Amino acid sequence: MVATRRAQQQRALTTRARLIEAAFDGLLEDGYAATTVGAVQARAGVARGTLLHHFPTRGDLMAGVVEDLVERRLEVLGTSLPAGPEVASWDEVVDLVWRALRSPAYTAALELWVAARTDPELRDALLPLQQRIFAAVHRSITLLVGEDHPQAPMLVQFTIDLLTGSHLAGVLEPRLGTDRVVEAWKVALRTLADAWDTDA
């Protein structure tokens, strides 16, 4: 009986993962408007009732995609840079954030956040996740550079905001000079970090 229940739970988890993966792929390839419940159902190869059992609404399904992006795809925050007592350099943090912004995970998340502006159901599904996600990402990056720097949270926020803006400006068409902006920010960030550390 216990083995049967575990097998059922495993099948349910596998089906849920397949649905999320199908929705994720749809967002990347076709955009939010085309990633309907029916399209995800067809892509995943499951019955409509099965999809609705796991995700009663489209908003629930997209919220599941966002949670997956945070829990699974953005694990890069904990694995890309040194672990333990060794901290990351500011240059490494800039590279990490820039790489994350150009990843498929961010592209899918961007589709959802833009759509949520005018989609009340999607907005209601994403709002409870938003602050938790932003706080978790910010906290993870801050920990990488060490908490002993007095202005680490502010410098991390500067980095995220500046690089996000640079990335969004080139979403439709790559902009010349963006790589130079990223490299220039590394220099400016090191200067700010050293100055504020000395002041403290």
Rank of each mutant, 00 (worst) to 15 (best):
L144T: 00
A195Y: 07
L77F: 01
R175Q: 15
V97T: 01
E71A: 11
L144G: 02
G84K: 02
A17E: 13
R180C: 11
V181G: 03
T35G: 02
W90A: 00
L143V: 02
S166H: 11
L176W: 10
V66C: 06
A7R: 15
L28Q: 05
W185S: 09
R102A: 14
L162N: 01
E121W: 13
T159S: 03
A184S: 15
D95V: 02
A39G: 11
V97P: 00
H53I: 07
G26S: 15
T118V: 11
T50L: 08
G64I: 00
A108T: 04
R123D: 08
L192C: 01
E147G: 08
A34G: 01
R139A: 11
P153H: 10
F24N: 04
T57V: 11
V145P: 01
T4M: 12
A17H: 15
A152C: 02
R102T: 12
F158R: 14
L19R: 09
R175W: 06
H53Y: 15
R123W: 08
E86C: 00
V87Q: 08
Y106V: 07
L61C: 04
D95E: 11
A3D: 15
R11K: 13
R180G: 15
E92D: 05
E86H: 01
I133P: 02
A47E: 13
V37L: 15
L176P: 07
H53L: 12
E29I: 12
F55M: 04
L122M: 13
L176C: 05
G59F: 00
D68R: 10
T118H: 14
L96A: 07
A42Q: 15
D25M: 13
L172K: 13
A109G: 14
V97F: 00
